[in-house]
Structure formats: structure tokens, C-alpha cells
Design a binder for these strands. Structure first.
Length: 147
DNA sequence: GCCAACGTTGGC
DNA sequence: GCCAACGTTGGC
């Protein structure tokens, strides 16, 4: 899951402990949250649009998808009049803080690991919620930044 | 701030 | 259903 740290960072998640992942307004990203993310699933927390961009921590899914109510609020920046409360367009999940990495695992670094070459992160860079394979997860969790 | 790579919108 | 125009994301 990607977030601009100036908007919501791994430190914010640490402070909040649990947060709803609201504001996703992309169908593919929504589908992953709505259809694929289950309680207990691990989440790589990625800082985007920053220097350097990269993985900043770990989170875990604690609540499966439910309607993103920020879409119903005209005063919310993520308001979407097309989302009908009786048939919501947008969904979100809740995630909890697990840990921060000791340092950012930069995108360059991830790209340099041959076994990660097929990561969705590299192919669909703009997708804000995307799947990670068990193999990719294992490799990333074995990096020294988690010690 | 620029630009590539999308995704979305709307005219036809 | 096509496609041009426009908007957004995110790396650099």
C-alpha cells in the first residue's frame, strides 16, 4: 500500500495504531482491497513521492472491506457523488501498524534484487494498492532493514 | 517542475 | 465503441 508520507506516513500509522485506508479512487486498487485483502494479511507500507521512495514499514489487515464513507461526504476531499450509499463504488480496509523499517528500503534497491524483477510495483508504478507474492514478501522481509 | 504512463471523460 | 483531450500519479 502506497502513501505520500507528507499526507500519511508510517509514523502516523504508528501513532494511530489502526487506520482506515480511505480515499482510494482507482478501480484496480479498490478491487484488491475489496476482493483480495483478508484479515491477517501482511502489508508493505510504501512511501511515494519522497526522497527516497521505498518501503517504510509493515502493517496488517485487521478489517476486511467495507464502504469508504468519505465518498458520501460532500465536504470531504475524496467526495464522489457517483458513489451511492446503497450501492457504494468505493471500499476500504483497516490496517494496523506492525513495525517501521530501520531505514527506507529504496525503490532502486528493490529493483536491484533479481528475484523481485516481476514485482507489480515496477510494472504498474501508479497503482496505489497492489499484490505482493509470497516469494517477494519473503525476500523483502529477509532484508537487513528489519533487524 | 517535467514528463511518461496511465485512467477518465465526453463528443461523435 | 472510438478517440482526443484532459487529469492524476509518481519517479526523477
Amino acid at each position: 500500500m502506497k502513501s505520500e508520507p507528507s499526507v500519511f506516513s508510517i509514523d502516523d500509522l504508528k501513532a494511530y495504531k489502526v487506520t482506515c485506508w480511505d480515499g482510494v479512487r482507482n478501480y484496480q486498487a479498490r478491487n484488491f482491497m475489496r476482493d483480495a485483502m483478508k484479515i491477517g494479511d501482511g502489508v508493505l507500507f510504501y512511501h511515494s513521492s519522497t526522497q527516497p521512495s521505498g518501503i517504510a514499514g509493515l502493517a496488517e489487515v485487521v478489517k476486511e472491506s467495507y464502504p469508504d464513507y468519505t465518498a458520501f461526504d460532500p465536504k470531504d476531499i475524496h467526495y464522489d457523488p457517483k458513489s451511492d450509499p446503497s450501492k457504494p463504488t468505493w471500499y476500504m480496509v483497516d490496517v494496523k501498524f506492525v513495525k517501521a523499517s530501520k531505514s527506507i528500503i529504496a525503490l532502486d534497491r528493490l529493483k536491484a534484487i533479481p528475484a523481485l524483477k516481476n514485482m507489480v510495483l515496477f510494472k504498474y508504478g501508479r497503482l496505489s494498492v497492489q499484490p505482493v507474492t509470497p516469494e517477494e514478501w519473503k525476500i523483502i522481509l529477509s532484508l537487513p532493514e528489519w533487524d
